[in-house]
Amino acid sequence: MRRDPSPSSPCPFVVSGRLIRRFGLGAVAATGCAIFTLGVGVWLRRIDLDPAYAMTFLPGQMLTGAGVGLVIPALSSVVGETLPQSRWGAGSAMVDTARQVGMVLGTAFITLLHQPVSDLTGVRHG
Rank of each mutant, 00 (worst) to 15 (best):
E81C: 07
L63E: 04
L25D: 00
V79L: 08
D48N: 15
S92T: 06
L112W: 09
I110G: 00
G89M: 12
S16K: 06
P116M: 10
V95N: 09
V40R: 00
D48T: 10
W43D: 02
P7L: 14
E81V: 04
L38H: 00
D119K: 04
V68T: 12
Y53V: 15
T82G: 00
G65L: 07
C11W: 11
M55E: 13
G65W: 06
R21I: 00
L58A: 15
G60L: 06
D4Q: 02
S6H: 09
I20V: 15
V79I: 13
D50K: 07
V123L: 15
V68A: 14
L63D: 03
L49W: 01
L83M: 13
A108E: 02
M1N: 07
L49C: 02
P59M: 03
A52R: 13
V28E: 04
A34E: 03
G69D: 03
P84W: 05
V68S: 10
L44Y: 12
E81N: 11
R46T: 12
Q61A: 15
A66R: 01
L112E: 05
S77G: 15
S9E: 13
G17N: 07
V79T: 14
P7E: 09
I47W: 08
A52P: 01
S9Q: 13
A66I: 14
V28L: 11
V79K: 06
R2Q: 06
I72H: 03
